[in-house]
Amino acid sequence: MESLFAVERLSTPLEERDDMITVKGLNKWFGDLHVLKNVDLTVKQGEVVVILGPSGSGKSTFIRTLNALEEFQTGEIVVDGISLTNDLKNIEEIRMETGMVFQSFNLFPHMTILKNISLAPIWVRKWKKQRAEQIALELLERVGIPEQAHKFPGQLSGGQQQRVAIARALAMRPKIMLFDEPTSALDPEMVKEVLDVMKTLAESGMTMLVVTHEMGFARQVADRIVLFDYGEIIEEGPPEQIFDHPQHDRTKLFLSQIL
């Protein structure tokens, strides 16, 4: 049987897999404000990286540079072998390979759920409408809300909307999923349903970069945790190491404030 989210699952250990994302010496300024300072990060295929850090530390800005929603000034970003330059063609190719889920869902309010999901596959992947809608329905089934296909986003709860947003990103068959605080705008009782979907997705072998404040999710699902502060990576490592034996003082401070 096809794996749950149709991503090829790898049995090879992480260290031997190909690089999915390579970031070298990334610098970004907003005016005079230096928001990303010499960021280096490599993400392997199928790896789940959770990015933690205080607000304003540049973690959202960082993952938004990966699919060119934000520009950067110096450094190098390679996504799935494609170098991120100002070339529109490269940008569009990278966006086809990376799905993104936003804090505020950003569903298209004037389209039904089904249209929301099938729009990009039809116009970007050039799939037949019938095929795109069939896949949209399958994805809705997998995120647990097949009965909502013909409603409009405004008729759904926050948790349901965010699951639709995940399905919409997945419909493009991306190789990488970026999550920008996906549960921060949700009522507490809806956080779990979204995290469950993300967990299943991680187990199916998707390469994921997740900015979140959900420590439980980070500890349980992440292969690696990256800590941002003042625009730089101050510490990274497996969850056990970060949570139980943090090395850096700022990491300890951050964790003491959250946990």
């Binding site: 936003f102 505020s104 950003n106 298209f108 970007v124 990103a169």
Partner: peptide, 18 residues
Amino acid sequence: IPRGQYEAAQSLGLSKAH
């Protein structure tokens, strides 16, 4: 139209015209 609508469309790889 909120910025998020543009970003969502861009992140899906839609061209500017689409």
